[in-house]
Design a protein around this nucleic acid. Structure first.
Length: 274
DNA sequence: ATGCCTATTATTAATAGA
């Protein structure tokens, strides 16, 4: 079972790149971010033709998230996080796919710091933490995948000192990410590659990809029941070199579970005697 | 260094991204 996250940076503008990558990588489940398309302009037919069912939450010009699944339509569980005061930003969508719960997210960028956008990012992060805790407590197999807009550590930035006051690397944001992990989630890329410099994003500016001036900001977090089955994780970084490509590269994991046969929900230990 | 690139939306420029 291969699960990927990909910030496409415009699902219509990048459609040839998306379809080419889907054909080459053949993921079972994909979380997409930054559709940059209103609900009615999602390229459903082209994606269906490629063999994927889809649910999506669009928005005019900005944001937008989707979940694709090979051969099936994801069963939507929710869109938006509990406690969101406006629901104007399309940044979270959650579905059941083949017995797994998949949360696809696009965390706010938050620049500039300080300011209202940064405050919104922290507030959104807090809502994500609350919802993530609820998901963990359910004991279900869950993956939370998306563009978190945070580099968790120095190892995830080509030049940490240049980013210390950026909203993607501010201590408050890194702490929020660490606090989320401390609930019991596993950062899949880091589990497989504990010491490697791995990036998922390269700026369009300054020839960043050629210089490998990258950031690791796209993450797949696994609940304990899924983390046990993690077999591989990586970034399809060559996609970043394609024509008319996104500034992010697809990031993926492989779980050693048969498709549609998720690990059994752990039994409750404290079972009343009868 | 606050610009360099790229997309969307609405009219040739503004805004957001990270």
């Amino acid at each position: 079972m291969k699960i990927a996250t990909y910030n496409v940076n415009g699902v219509n503008g990048r459609l040839p790149v998306l379809l080419r990558w889907l054909g080459a990588a053949s993921p079972d489940i994909v979380c997409l971010q930054e559709l940059k398309a209103p609900q009615e302009r999602f390229p459903r037919q082209e994606i269906e033709k490629a063999g994927y069912g889809a649910i999506w939450h669009g928005q005019k010009a900005w944001n937008g998230v989707a979940i694709l699944a090979k051969g099936v339509v994801p069963v939507e569980r929710r869109r938006g996080l509990p406690g969101d005061p406006d629901h104007l930003h399309s940044r979270y969508i959650e579905a059941e796919v083949g017995g797994l719960i998949v949360g696809g997210l696009y965390l706010p960028n938050g620049n500039p710091w300080p300011g209202p956008k940064f405050d919104y990012k922290l507030a959104w992060f807090a809502r994500l933490q609350r919802h993530a805790k609820t998901l963990l407590k359910s004991g279900e197999p869950v993956v939370l995948a998306g563009d978190y807009n945070v580099m968790p550590t120095d190892l995830d930035v080509y030049k940490p000192e240049r980013w210390v006051n950026d909203a993607l690397f501010r201590p408050e944001v890194r702490k929020a990410y660490a606090k989320l992990l401390a609930q019991g989630w596993t950062d899949a890329l880091r589990m497989i590659h504990p010491d490697e410099r791995i990036y998922t994003f390269w700026d369009y500016f300054r020839n960043a990809y050629a210089r490998d001036a990258g950031l690791r900001i796209d993450h797949l977090l696994l609940s304990p029941t899924l983390a046990k089955h993690l077999k591989a994780a990586n970034v399809d970084r060559e996609v970043r070199s394609w024509e008319k490509t996104s500034d992010h590269a697809p990031t993926w994991i492989v779980l050693a579970i048969p498709k549609g046969r998720p690990p059994a929900k752990p039994k409750s230990r404290a079972r009343p005697a009868r």
